[in-house]
Simulated scan of single mutants.
Amino acid sequence: MIFPTILVFCIVLAVGYGQVLGSPEYCTDLIPQSNVTVHKLFGTWFGVEVITHKDRVTGERPSSDCIYVVISGITYEMATARPPENSREIVTQFGKAPISNPMKDYRYLRLEWTELDEKVEYILRYNISRSGFWLSSAPHERDHFGDKPSYSDFSGIIQVIVETDNHLVLTFCETIPKRQLFSIILTRHSNSIPMDLIKSIHDKLRNRNLQNIAYRPVCAGVDLIHGSYFLAITIALVFAIQ
């Protein structure tokens, strides 16, 4: 009777584990943009708004803190701290046999998130067939980036929801170190996203079954949103006077 009991326990555990990972709150495939021209994303982006999809606190929480995101391409060796896999064959007891690199279709990225005096570095990889779906790819050595690496042990997925020349929307599903699900709206130039565009991005996130629970306009986003309100009030007063 011990074996059936263990079998039932394993099935229950597997089902529960699958439900957690497959739930809408956890790393669901959001059907990101597939043909992202990744090299066009390289460089600095300015944060406009952080949207939390899983939080006990709701509503808008403006912040004067600024967020800067820098995206760059890195090599396999930089991402993994391993030597390049140039060998085309291995020696076995039966002689030489050809090998293929299972990671040959992957490319690697570094995403640096700077907020106040803190910088978090994400090491990511993506398959060239799905360039908008980025997976965490940690270095094998903790000291790969120096004595005090800024790497945060991020484990999860980043998906490119919107990509244009002027703005970018990324959704982070983080399992380690914290269970978080959030999106960030980024722009190439500060104060360059109008309110109607931000609202349309909110709608796109909802269409992907992401609940927009809490909004945190940051730096440029705070100035832009507040400026839009003041502009609307000014226009209303002008028409009222007329």
Rank of each mutant, 00 (worst) to 15 (best):
M1F: 13
F3Y: 11
P4D: 05
V8D: 03
V8T: 06
V8K: 08
C10V: 11
I11S: 05
V12W: 07
V20M: 07
L21V: 13
L21M: 14
E25G: 01
C27M: 07
C27Q: 09
D29W: 10
L30K: 06
L30D: 04
P32D: 04
N35W: 01
V36I: 11
T37F: 02
V38M: 15
G43N: 11
T44I: 13
W45D: 12
F46T: 04
V48P: 00
E49H: 02
V50T: 12
V50Y: 06
H53D: 11
K54Y: 06
D55I: 00
G59L: 05
R61S: 11
P62V: 09
S63R: 07
S63C: 10
D65Q: 09
I67T: 03
I67K: 00
I74A: 06
E77K: 03
A79R: 01
T80H: 09
T80F: 06
A81H: 05
P83L: 04
E85Y: 05
E85S: 06
E89P: 00
I90F: 10
V91Q: 11
Q93N: 12
F94Y: 15
F94K: 14
P98I: 11
P98E: 14
I99G: 01
N101G: 04
M103G: 01
K104H: 09
R107W: 01
L109N: 05
L111Y: 03
L111F: 12
L111Q: 08
E112Y: 00
E115N: 06
E115W: 03
E115C: 13
L116Q: 13
L116I: 10
E118H: 11
E118P: 00
E118T: 14
E121T: 14
Y122P: 00
R125E: 10
Y126C: 09
S131H: 01
G132R: 08
S136R: 03
H140D: 00
H140L: 05
E141T: 00
E141V: 01
D143M: 08
H144F: 07
G146E: 10
D147E: 14
P149H: 06
Y151S: 02
Y151E: 15
S152A: 12
D153L: 13
D153M: 14
S155Q: 03
G156K: 09
G156W: 08
I157W: 01
I157R: 01
I158Y: 05
I158F: 05
I158P: 03
V160G: 04
N166M: 06
L170N: 02
T171E: 08
T171P: 00
T171L: 07
C173Q: 10
T175D: 07
I176W: 03
P177Q: 12
K178F: 15
R179Y: 07
Q180G: 03
Q180L: 11
L181K: 12
I185D: 03
I193S: 01
M195I: 14
D196S: 11
D196K: 07
S200H: 03
R206M: 11
N207M: 12
N209D: 11
Q211M: 07
Y215M: 10
R216T: 13
R216A: 14
R216W: 04
P217F: 12
V218S: 09
V218R: 08
C219S: 14
A220Y: 12
G221W: 09
L224F: 04
I225A: 09
H226W: 13
G227S: 13
S228A: 15
F230G: 01
A232R: 15
T234W: 13
I235V: 15
F239G: 00
F239C: 09
A240D: 05
Q242I: 14
